[in-house]
């Protein structure tokens, strides 16, 4: 028995040390989610993958001369549509310091307030590791570093270029922004997926709760990100009354709604049909967004 215990301990050390080292390296450098799972923050950006890739907190900090960096806590359409899980996550993340002139950006899109049914996404939030973590503010977040299988993150990036013949550079910023730059003319194309969508009153209720929660510590802006014409048409197909609904919520909550999807803006997208801005366009957009927010704040 003693021999077994001795060898067992040796085995554990031999396995865990390289595992932990590899996990830490890969996740802290390549995992899109990790920066969002450490620390608490005063200014939050919420939403889906459009906001994750499309809003640069560094530029906001620079434009508004903030002493702290806003944190981009947007994930993707599987993880962070508005709902009890995301709400509870945001509750744990915001720092209640009530800094003057603080603001939060709440990204909205039809998919963020709809239920989606396909083979892998149905009820997916309830399984997400992010919502099972004991802490989302520890630094380092050891639980996430050990539990998230990291090698696949690396493998996926390495093979993405090969299969899509698309050269792309991915930079995961500490502030949660995921900057993706594509070589000119290249796009990432997703395989065919069949889904059904339905408006969720529950998700809309949680969107409203999120606005109420964040309004206590700063000004809240509802932002609809710029997308391609094809994506806009698709969204108008699945949720024709979306804009009207957002205007209504904005009015009820005295919250500005800045809709960039319906403006005729020319940005570059890193994917086809055009959901996510490239890094270059994200920076341009964040400058424009800052200008509009500043105009709004000075009007008040």
């Amino acid at each position: 028995m003693k021999k077994l215990i001795r060898k067992g301990l040796l085995f554990a050390v031999i396995i865990m040390v390289p595992y932990a080292a590899l996990q830490r390296y890969v996740i802290t450098h390549h995992d899109h989610n990790y920066p969002k799972l450490t620390g608490q923050h005063q200014a939050l950006i919420t939403g889906l993958s459009r906001e994750k890739r499309g809003i640069s907190p560094d530029i906001l900090q620079e434009e508004f001369g903030m002493s702290y960096t806003p944190q981009n806590l947007a994930f993707n359409s599987a993880t962070s549509p508005y709902g009890p899980y995301y709400y509870s996550f945001l509750e744990r993340k915001y720092l209640d310091t009530r800094a003057p002139d603080n603001f939060h950006l709440i990204g909205v899109s039809p998919v963020s307030v709809m239920n989606i049914r396909d083979s892998l996404m149905d009820g997916r939030e309830s399984f997400d590791l992010i919502y099972k973590l004991h802490s989302v503010t520890d630094e380092p977040n050891l639980e996430y570093l050990l539990r998230k299988p990291a090698l696949k993150v690396l493998y996926k990036e390495a093979t993405d270029s090969f299969f899509r013949r698309a050269k792309r550079e991915v930079h995961v910023h500490d502030n949660g922004w995921v900057e993706i730059n594509m070589a000119q003319g290249h796009h990432r194309t997703q395989g065919p997926v069949s889904r059904s969508y339905s408006v969720s009153a529950r998700r809309i209720r949680y969107l409203q709760k999120t606005i109420d929660m964040l309004s206590k510590t700063g000004r809240v802006f509802l932002i609809r990100m710029p997308v391609s014409h094809d994506v806009l048409q698709f969204e108008e197909g699945i949720y024709p009354g979306f804009d009207r609904a957002m205007h209504q919520i904005a009015s009820e909550k005295s919250t500005p709604y800045l809709n960039y999807a319906t403006r005729n803006l020319s940005y570059e997208f890193s994917d086809k049909p055009g959901h996510h801005l490239t890094g270059k366009s994200a920076k341009e957009f964040t400058h424009l967004l800052s200008k509009d927010i500043r105009a709004f704040l000075s009007d008040r």
């Binding site: 396995i15 595992y19 590791l129 090698l151 696949k152």
Partner: peptide, 17 residues
């Protein structure tokens, strides 16, 4: 032991699946 255990730890599916 090393390769198989590392494969299990690193290549297992995420909690979702």
């Amino acid at each position: 032991y090393f390769l198989v255990t590392q494969a299990i730890l690193l290549l297992r599916l995420s909690d979702i699946e």
